[in-house]
Simulated scan of single mutants.
Amino acid sequence: MPDTTQPRVAIVTGGSGGIGRAAAERLALDGTSVVVHYSSRAATADAVVSTITDAGGQAIAAGGDVADEQAMAELFRTAADTFGGVDVVVHTAGIMPLAPISEMDLETFDRIQRVNVRGTFVVDQLAAQEVREGGAIINFSTSVTKLLMPNYGAYAASKGAVEALALILARELRGRDITVNTIAPGPTATPLFFEGKDEQVVAHIASLNPLERLGTPEDIAEVVAFLAGPGRWVNGQTIFANGGAA
């Protein structure tokens, strides 16, 4: 049985980003100790840690390339050495270069697949080995896999692979009381989303769902908190958190 007397420990990859930051801060509110992972924005990750610790929580920052198995193994070791183990892995890290399929150069395509697909595989592989009984692995896809918007071909392809990996891993972890799910956000108000879009485009995208607004990182963080904690009967699912857009 999982030890319920000690705080749960979470690794949040991409924890310096919009959704990752909100997820890290939300998990900390539940008393979870958090390892805030970053790729290049150490100062931003440190700011997330400060926000959590100033509120009385426990957090540290740790960097590394999600597609590098040695760097990610070190990330998991840091979590175990600092907090005693890992119960939750929230894998938000990813990139989203956009271009029509006919125009995207293959170097960019390969970079998307390396970060989004290989990165997920590396993190999930380690999570499957290290997450304790009663834990949760939460991957991130996108509602674009249903919306099928132009210019998102390479990105949507990478996230379709992420969904498949999570569904299979959930079945492979039979008997270990570890859930594996994927969150597929709709358009969410993060710097990654706003990059390269003018106000008219943003307004149009926001109008596509019945709630007629963009999601917020905090909206998505609530889904993370549910899957990381009370949502023990939800397993092997892709949850579309998009305001009803698809």
Rank of each mutant, 00 (worst) to 15 (best):
I138D: 07
Q200C: 00
I168K: 08
A154N: 02
T44K: 11
G244R: 12
D198P: 11
A24C: 06
P150F: 10
A157K: 01
I137A: 09
S158Y: 09
H91D: 12
F140A: 09
E25K: 05
E172V: 03
N151L: 06
E163W: 03
T5A: 13
L27Q: 09
P191K: 06
I178H: 07
R118Y: 00
N116L: 09
T120Q: 03
G243C: 09
D30F: 05
P97K: 11
I19L: 13
A22H: 05
V234N: 04
I112C: 02
P2T: 08
Q200R: 13
F121P: 00
G134H: 12
D3Y: 08
N209S: 13
T142Q: 04
P185C: 11
N151D: 14
T78A: 09
D65Y: 04
W233Y: 15
A55G: 12
G244T: 11
P191M: 08
R174N: 03
M149H: 03
E172L: 04
T82Q: 13
R171Q: 15
E74G: 12
S40A: 14
I137V: 12
M149C: 01
V12F: 04
G186M: 11
T13Y: 02
T179E: 07
E130R: 14
A42W: 00
L208P: 00
G15D: 07
G231R: 05
A47S: 14
F140R: 07
V202A: 03
E218W: 01
G84N: 13
P230L: 07
V88H: 02
L227E: 01
A55C: 02
I52V: 14
S143M: 08
I138R: 05
A43E: 15
A10H: 11
E107D: 15
A80C: 08
A28E: 02
R132Q: 13
G160D: 11
G84L: 13
P210R: 08
I178Y: 09
A47Q: 13
R111W: 04
R213D: 08
T238C: 12
A246D: 15
I168W: 02
F194K: 04
A225W: 03
V122F: 05
I19C: 01
M104P: 00
A225K: 06
I112K: 01
V117M: 03
A246N: 13
G14S: 02
I60S: 03
D81M: 06
F194A: 11
A156P: 01
F121Y: 15
G231C: 05
N209V: 10
S39M: 01
V144L: 15
D81R: 14
A128M: 01
V201H: 14
S207R: 04
E69R: 14
G134F: 10
V202E: 06
E107K: 12
A55S: 14
Q70V: 12
A127T: 03
D110T: 11
T53H: 06
G196T: 05
V49S: 08
G243A: 11
V122L: 10
R21V: 00
M72N: 04
E25Q: 11
V144W: 05
H204S: 08
G57A: 10
V86P: 07
E130H: 10
V34E: 06
Q6E: 12
L165Y: 13
R213N: 12
R171M: 05
T182C: 10
G85P: 12
